[in-house]
Simulated assay, not measured.
Amino acid sequence: MAKTYAGKDIEIGFDMKRCIHARNCYLKLPRVFDPERRPWVDPDAASAEEIAAMIRTCPSGALTYSRLDGVEGEAAPGINRATVVENGPMALHGNLTVKGETMTRATLCRCGQTKTPPFCDHSHAGAGFKATGEPEPTGKDAPGDDPGEACQVIQHENGPIEARGALEITGGTGARVHRGTRAFLCRCGQSNNKPFCDGSHKSAGLEVPGDG
């Protein structure tokens, strides 16, 4: 559950279990986000607009916000997009449903070592996970994707993550890898066709929960 920090014009939420320590918050707004201070978040140390703009750059969605000044909150972009991070997770941005919760940003584990599936918890760094951030295009470019359509992230027990709904997958440079309405994504770290599942989780003995 996210901890909240309420200020005059904005309330900031922080979910430690989803944080991948990208440090966007501290590097961009250190007067608001200071891990050496307690409490480490000061929602009145910058304007609500500055804080909201910074939070929208948090790739994992660990930081969220609610405006208390009558301004609308964060809206999902028109296209659901997943960016493959070299030697790291897959960063999703869009109209997402994960574990029954609606969100606009999430980073999904690809290394198979996370303690908070399906989310990345930065375990890939200690595990020495290696995977390209520029996969070969699949040639799949499904027509008729509905802008704004929700993408549901589904965990299959001891298996891959299924992305069901319109989703565009790109490499780190923005080059399109895949576009369609259904994709099975590797989360065991062993696929020879990353970021897609190729069944390697079976021989790898992956043990992860499903969504039931």
Rank of each mutant, 00 (worst) to 15 (best):
G144E: 08
I79C: 01
E168W: 08
Y5Q: 06
P35L: 02
I12G: 06
M54E: 10
E72K: 14
R187P: 05
A82K: 00
F14A: 05
P35T: 00
C19P: 01
T57N: 12
T83H: 04
G73P: 01
D146I: 14
V71G: 11
F184I: 08
D34N: 14
G13T: 06
S60M: 00
V32D: 10
C120M: 12
F14D: 11
K202S: 05
R176L: 10
P137L: 12
H93V: 14
T114M: 08
V208H: 08
I154P: 13
C197L: 12
T170Q: 11
E11A: 14
V177W: 00
N158F: 08
P77S: 15
V84K: 00
C186K: 10
N24W: 10
A22Q: 06
G199W: 11
D9R: 13
G78D: 03
P135G: 12
P30E: 05
R67G: 02
H122T: 09
M54G: 05
T97Y: 06
C19I: 02
P135E: 12
E136L: 09
P117C: 12
I10N: 06
T97M: 09
D44M: 01
A82Y: 03
G172F: 05
M90C: 04
C188W: 07
C120P: 05
R182Y: 13
I51K: 09
G199F: 09
M54W: 08
C120A: 09
C197W: 09
A46D: 02
S47W: 04
L63G: 08
T170H: 09
K140H: 04
Y5P: 10
Y65W: 03
T104F: 07
D15A: 13
E36A: 10
A91E: 01
R110P: 07
T116M: 02
N95Q: 00
T104W: 07
